[in-house]
Amino acid sequence: MKIVTTIRQLPDLIEPLVIDASGKSLDYGEARFLVNEYDDHALEQAVLLKEQHGASITVVALDFGDVNDALYTAAAKGVDRIIKIPYEEKKPPFPRAAAEIFAGVIRDLQPDLILAGVQSYEEWDGSFTPLLAHALQLPYVGLIQGVECSGEQSITAFKEFPGAAKARMTIRLPAVLGILAASHPPRYVPISRVRAAMKSAHFEEIAAAPPSIAPKIQLEKLYAPVTGARAEMIDGSESEIASRIVQLLTEKGVLK
């Protein structure tokens, strides 16, 4: 089975987010990046499928942010092929454009299964993964929690529904799955392996045509949330804050 997974980089919220001069975008030059956690689960699911049933894994990522670190870690996890899509812009593409860019490269790889994180916290113009499936003209199922092989031309995927109902579905390939969680949490890779990957891993570069579409939503303003009238921000020392919380919980009848 040929599996493709995608990796998207997101601003690491450990650093304060800085809004640029336009007031409509983050200043990505000031950001530190990490891998979208759902993409990390998608990669783990791919590696688990490879270990259990045999498969080749190709990771595709935009050359943006700290992508090399993410790709070396992917190499250390045992992926077979790594493709970087050259990208010159200072900010990431909006989701519909990203779907078009990724689809341009993935289409030629002719994968059986595409695993991508079901969402990321930077999506504002639609959700990347179903848009990717649309661009590839492939079926899509989202919110998947665990995938198993069930034959040459199909896979079994699991999905939870409200009301404690769990579905097991057989999906004919090729297909795109939006991964919420892998069957097991993403593994820890010893740094020695990442270091070895830094010396030996090979990244291919495959260019994609620039996206032909513009965002359907115009972003007018990006700003930090404003404290609402009904919110009380508690200031003071740790003990003053703690006392106020205890007082509030007592007033509301939570503490007696």
Partner: peptide
């Protein structure tokens, strides 16, 4: 704890 045997991607000899 469930143990998963990963793919050995690279030979590594600790220094």
């Amino acid at each position: 704890m469930q143990q998963t045997q990963p793919t050995i991607a690279y030979d590594y000899t600790p220094s």
